[in-house]
Design a protein around this nucleic acid. Sequence first.
DNA 1: GTGGTCTAGACCACC
DNA 2: GTGGTCTAGACCACG
Lengths: 125, 125, 125, 125
Amino acid sequence: MFQIDRFGRTPIYEQIIDQTQRLIASGILKEGDQLPSVRALSQELSVNPNTLQKAYSELERRGLCISAPGNGRFVTADAVRLVGEGLKERLEELQKIAEELCAAGMPVEQVLGSVNAAYGKEIRA
Amino acid sequence: MFQIDRFGRTPIYEQIIDQTQRLIASGILKEGDQLPSVRALSQELSVNPNTLQKAYSELERRGLCISAPGNGRFVTADAVRLVGEGLKERLEELQKIAEELCAAGMPVEQVLGSVNAAYGKEIRA
Amino acid sequence: MFQIDRFGRTPIYEQIIDQTQRLIASGILKEGDQLPSVRALSQELSVNPNTLQKAYSELERRGLCISAPGNGRFVTADAVRLVGEGLKERLEELQKIAEELCAAGMPVEQVLGSVNAAYGKEIRA
Amino acid sequence: MFQIDRFGRTPIYEQIIDQTQRLIASGILKEGDQLPSVRALSQELSVNPNTLQKAYSELERRGLCISAPGNGRFVTADAVRLVGEGLKERLEELQKIAEELCAAGMPVEQVLGSVNAAYGKEIRA
DNA sequence: GTGGTCTAGACCACC
DNA sequence: GTGGTCTAGACCACG
């Protein structure tokens, strides 16, 4: 369910956050679904419980999930909407890079080609 | 000449590297131009000299500049070409975000639109 | 009769205790009244019977109710008086917040105003 | 500078948060002031660095301070205003308790007396 | 020196 | 079983 890169620059807890959001965005995780418990996920990924706790706490802070102590942690009703809003920021990020490439003289066609490639890659998958 | 964000996540020395590359890519810094001295820049930006030294060393390692001990540090002839190659990495970064947006269900048109907007913005400027 | 918040920080059994005390304090539950059975309440609130057992045991320990095995659980004669004494703790809690607001520089008038508002609100009701 | 209660119900990291806010509210900590380093405070209070890190992270999330990695952590310009806004919530909390006491039949005078006592206590101190 | 992240392992309360 | 908190100690990058 999760894929961890232990050698990259991005911290593990952030990878968990990103991937959980992606699972919500893609509809794999729906409102009311229970997230894997800290302990279970800790064992599955060989990641320290504290690290996962940190990730989950942040997701909770963002309103994507809510914890019922003693019962588990569940995806909220607002999760899909909130993740959707987050995507706009990602799009702005992409646009910022595009502006930079433009300033550096890269032709538009090449950038557009990359975007199409990204979407084509997904269709094939 | 440089704009430093002391509180962001990206280290200062990396900001120096990025901005220098951008100055080269956009033609503001040309072959043979002298880079500001560590001492001078240190004072101007209120940044630790060691930090600037680290940035300059990395730029040298990448072949973008070369130090003439006692005379200063100068932009190399290959600098423009080398920076151009570096842009491919940025393009890959953009593509990665595009893939993510695709996975989350954002329509292609919106992403392509952002890219065009980025380039359009530049044309108007 | 009871309102449970499964996601808040205060444990469910404590919510049961608090609300029962409030029912007694406000006169809705009187001496000799029977409390809902663990089984019935468990079903009504979808709460684990153990949790309710814990709440009721604590109420008994405080002398607010007493169980007649096989017959049910009843509010004691001392209940009202005992709950009244418990209010002192709440008052101390209020005083603690007031001290804090004082330390932070909030004017007394504003705090006194809030208290009056609280009582005014009740009179109108 | 900080006073920790290791046996109370409120977690240590929350005590740190509260007390820091109080220091800002009372003007002892001002804009641009450096907060004690995680390590230093850890030693002074005999509290684990992680616990303090957690507290500081939360303060940062609330916009009360900002970290400059490698340099320290500093009180933001908005801190005083933000803490002020937080006080309103505390006041509402107090009002809620007052309403509860009212419902339970405690006379207004007693509550007002407690508030005055809280403010009087501060004046004497 | 600073902050940031992570591990290992423990304890607690709650359900 | 669940989440929440804490300790001890480590490592890294940055300045």
